[in-house]
């Protein structure tokens, strides 16, 4: 299958290794990965803040970039939800509504694509360590991704999954919310990190890099030695 990679802007700039892990995993499965270079940001920041005109401007770039793609796969539940769930709303009544719907239909979150579209759960990965998994809220509640990452982690050799009590609690990122209401956002982050610590895991894994940025921010502040990795990075380890 020819798969177009959707790399959210902050993954592009901060976590390129996550995007490479996705490429590696998909290519090892024998698929052809391309990267439409016109892409930039999905438009979520202005969208979530209420500036839908500006969000549409950014989103049109994505519509153009992925116009010829067969399927689009991205390693962030949040940005994929933006395309899959919110583009159709954003473009309602717009001349590009149909295009937005088409993109929504062919876009998939990475773990859900592996499990539900490709039907694979064992990628032959090896990863020694105790891991706890954080469900990114958009992946979890907008896209209904919950079992998929766990099915994939279950087949990683050497990996022990320790569920945290607050697995489904929001990390507090929420885009511009994190800087508009830093005290609340940080309080949520504290709850999350306390729950991570409680498990005794040495790595926190998520299918959303934006959550990991928030969680890492707190762990670093607390000088914690717990590592944070994107699911793709774990699945690409050998």
């Amino acid at each position: 299958m020819r798969i177009s990679l959707f790399v959210p802007c902050f993954v592009d700039q901060i976590y390129p290794q996550v995007a490479w892990s996705v490429v590696r995993v998909l290519e090892e499965l024998g698929h052809q990965v391309d990267f439409p270079e016109g892409q930039s940001c999905c438009g979520q920041p202005p969208f979530n803040t209420g500036y839908w005109d500006e969000a549409r401007t950014a989103a049109r770039v994505a519509l153009a970039a992925f116009r010829d793609s067969e399927v689009v796969v991205g390693p962030s539940g949040s940005c994929v939800a933006m395309m899959k769930v919110f583009y159709p709303q954003l473009f309602k009544g717009d001349s590009q509504e149909l295009e937005a719907r088409e993109l929504a239909a062919k876009t998939h979150e990475f773990s859900s694509f592996l499990v539900n579209t490709l039907g694979v759960t064992d990628l032959g990965a090896k990863f020694e360590g105790k891991v706890t998994f954080h469900d990114g809220c958009h992946g979890l509640r907008e896209l209904g991704v919950k079992k998929e990452p766990r099915a994939l982690l279950a087949n990683v050799r050497g990996l022990e999954l320790l569920e945290m009590a607050e697995a489904e609690s929001c990390c507090g990122f929420g885009g511009t919310f994190a800087v508009k209401f830093p005290t609340i956002s940080t309080a949520m982050d504290e709850v999350k990190c306390a729950s991570i610590l409680e498990t005794g895991a040495d790595v926190v894994v998520s299918n959303d890099s934006s959550c990991l940025m928030q969680i890492r921010g707190m762990l670093d502040k607390q000088k914690s030695t717990i590592r944070s990795l994107h699911l793709a990075e774990v699945l690409a380890s050998r």
């Binding site: 901060i14 390129p16 270079e37 994190a178 940080t186 890492r216 921010g217 502040k221």
Partner: peptide
């Protein structure tokens, strides 16, 4: 607003865009 309570990550030395190219 971010760094008062959290550490901010560094940008990668080069972006995925550049690396891919």
């Amino acid at each position: 607003a971010w760094t008062r309570s959290r550490a901010f990550p560094n940008l990668a030395p080069t972006s995925f865009h550049e690396q891919w190219k």
